[in-house]
C-alpha cells in the first residue's frame, strides 16, 4: 500500500511530468490561458493516461514479450494510444454527452501529447505490475493537471502585468514555468 502511495506521489509531485520530466510541454504552453479550459484538458488527459497505462501494461505483457517483438513497441503503443483516444471520444459521446461537450475539443489533441506515449514507455522501463501501472498513470495525470491549472492561474494574473513586448506570449510563459520548476524541485527530497 505504501509502495503504491509512493508511486502516486512520485509521479504527481517529485517527478512531475511537465516540470521535472519535460513531457507534455506543448499543451502546457498552448492551452493554459484560462483555468476552466486547462482543468478540462487536465481531466481528459488524466482519464486517457490512466487507461493507456493499463493498456500499455497488457500489450507489453501479453503481446510484445510473448511474441518477442520489442522492435514493434513504438508502433504498437502509438497506435494503441490513437485508437484509445478515438474510442474514449465515441464512448463519451454515447454515454456522457455533457462530459463529451466539455472535453470534446481536447480529446483529439491528446494523441500527440508526448506525456501519454512517455507514460506508456516508462511502464515497461520501470517494470511496474498492473496495479502499479494504474497508480502511476493516475498520479502522472494528477501532476499534469496540477501544473497546467497552476500555470493558468498565474497567466490569468499576468494579463494585468506590464510585460515587455518581445517577452509576451510563449517566452514569459516559459520563464514563469522556470520559476515553477524551481518551486517543484523542493519536492526532490520527499521520497
Amino acid at each position: 500500500m505504501i509502495e503504491l502511495f509512493l508511486i502516486f506521489i512520485g509521479a504527481a509531485l517529485v517527478n512531475n511530468f511537465i516540470l521535472a520530466r519535460f513531457l507534455g510541454i506543448c499543451p502546457f504552453i498552448g492551452v493554459s490561458r484560462q483555468i476552466d479550459t486547462s482543468l478540462g484538458l487536465g481531466i481528459a488527459t488524466t482519464f486517457v493516461m490512466t487507461l493507456s497505462g493499463i493498456l500499455a501494461w497488457f500489450m507489453q505483457e501479453f503481446i510484445l514479450v510473448p511474441f518477442n517483438l520489442p522492435f514493434m513497441q513504438y508502433v504498437f503503443f502509438i497506435l494503441a494510444i490513437s485508437s484509445i483516444v478515438q474510442f474514449v471520444e465515441m464512448a463519451l459521446r454515447k454515454m456522457f454527452p455533457t462530459l463529451y461537450e466539455a472535453l470534446g475539443i481536447f480529446l483529439p489533441l491528446i494523441t500527440t501529447n508526448c506525456a501519454i506515449l512517455g507514460l506508456a514507455l516508462l511502464i515497461p522501463l520501470n517494470e511496474y505490475g498492473l496495479i502499479q501501472s494504474v497508480f502511476f498513470g493516475f498520479g502522472a495525470g494528477v501532476g499534469f493537471t496540477l501544473a497546467i491549472v497552476l500555470m493558468a492561474g498565474i497567466r490569468e494574473r499576468l494579463l494585468f502585468a506590464d510585460v515587455p513586448k518581445p517577452l509576451q506570449g510563449a517566452s514569459i510563459t516559459l520563464i514563469t514555468a522556470g520559476v515553477m520548476a524551481m518551486a517543484f524541485s523542493g519536492f526532490l527530497g520527499l521520497i
Binding site: 516540470l19 521535472a20 519535460f22 515587455p164 513586448k165 518581445p166 517577452l167 509576451q168 506570449g169 510563449a170 517566452s171 514569459i172 510563459t173 516559459l174 520563464i175 514555468a177 522556470g178 520559476v179 520548476a181 524551481m182 524541485s185
Partner: peptide
C-alpha cells in the same frame, strides 16, 4: 536543472522576438 532549461529557452525566445520585431 529543469528550471534552467525553461529560463534559458524563455530568454532566447524573447531575444529572437526582439530581433524579428
Amino acid at each position: 536543472l529543469p528550471s534552467g532549461a525553461f529560463l534559458t529557452l524563455g530568454v532566447l525566445l524573447g531575444l529572437y522576438n526582439m530581433l524579428i520585431q
